[in-house]
Simulated scan of single mutants.
Amino acid sequence: MANSRHFRTIFISDVHLGSKAAQTDLLLDFLRHHEADTIILVGDIVDGWRLKRSWHWPQGCNDVVQKLLRKARKGCRIVYIPGNHDEFLRDFPGMHFGGIEVADRIIHEAADGKKYLVLHGDEFDVVVRNARLLAYLGDWAYDAAIALNVVLAAIRRRLGMPYWSFSAWAKLQVKQAVNFIGEFQHVVAEEARKSGVDGVICGHIHHAVIEDIDGIRYINTGDWVESCTAVVERQDGTMEMITWQKPAAVPALQQLEDEVLEDMQAA
């Protein structure tokens, strides 16, 4: 594409393909407008948990997968680091699928010489690690918040009001959630320090941010359910957060809203 931007590396996580909340239209549009030498998928790209509960795989999911495979065929290196929702891929470290390499975690050296530990981050989530049932219940509650978010977004759009994420707002209003995010960031940053690197790039908690924590650069790529964010590395090694909201995606978002409304009426 003539107006596409080219980066050294693109980091994407928490797409949750298979979930009705996955913003596949926005991600596909982002991938059309951005090229890279390397794309690192930082976990929860496919939502195996939700697919086990109820199969949902619309054309948009196929389109995202095909777009990534096409980039791999054209010479882009793609590394897939599984998360807890796509943990079935953790049984295949070092394997290649259609040119996409699977790895548990990697050390990424940026163009400026700085090294980053790249991992999904769920191993530092006590709930996921030690209480799987509680994690599933939390996942169900998150689904409910996303469904409400879609309904509110539809109402706001019809009233001519700008997009606003209820689920993201609610998460930051709960003291325990805010404390969890802060604790998660410090624990992951400490893991990077133990690994002898300059920073860490992760996903998992759907909270996009780039900040320094006690001398460690902490980068969370966010998600493609609420924030629609990716982290890119420029040719000089600079890391940048990109939030992608394109008007072209409105029809697909309207379809998502209609599907969620139908599900709620059927329930």
Rank of each mutant, 00 (worst) to 15 (best):
S195M: 10
I45M: 08
F30Y: 00
S227D: 14
L133S: 15
D104T: 15
L17S: 07
H206F: 13
H108Q: 09
G99L: 03
I181Q: 02
F97R: 00
A177L: 08
D63R: 06
D214W: 07
G215H: 09
L159F: 08
L137Q: 15
F30T: 04
D263C: 02
R8A: 13
V126F: 05
R132T: 15
G60E: 07
R77P: 07
Y218F: 08
D122C: 08
F7R: 08
L172Y: 10
V127E: 03
T243N: 12
T38S: 10
H108A: 11
I10D: 06
G60F: 02
W224V: 04
D122K: 05
K74T: 01
D263G: 08
Q185V: 01
K246T: 14
H96N: 13
F30H: 04
L134M: 15
T38Q: 07
A192D: 04
H33K: 03
D37F: 13
D143G: 11
Y136F: 15
A145I: 05
V187M: 11
H207I: 02
R156I: 08
N220A: 01
Q245M: 14
K114S: 02
G182K: 01
V209T: 11
D236Y: 13
D25W: 05
S165D: 06
F97A: 01
R105G: 09
G99V: 02
G60A: 01
V118N: 08
N179R: 12
S227E: 13
K115R: 09
I146D: 08
D212E: 15
M241C: 01
F166K: 07
G199T: 02
A147L: 06
E109P: 12
W164A: 15
R8L: 14
D125T: 07
A170Y: 14
A2W: 09
N130D: 15
E226G: 10
M161P: 12
D104A: 06
H207G: 07
H6S: 12
G98C: 02
H34A: 06
V118F: 05
G98K: 03
H96E: 15
V187Q: 12
S54F: 10
D29T: 07
L26D: 11
I81V: 01
R234D: 12
T238V: 08
W169Q: 09
L253T: 11
G199R: 03
K20E: 05
T221L: 03
G113Q: 06
R193P: 03
A135I: 14
P251Y: 05
G18P: 01
R5W: 10
F11Y: 03
E109W: 00
R77F: 02
R77Y: 02
A266C: 10
E183Y: 07
A189W: 00
I146G: 14
H6A: 14
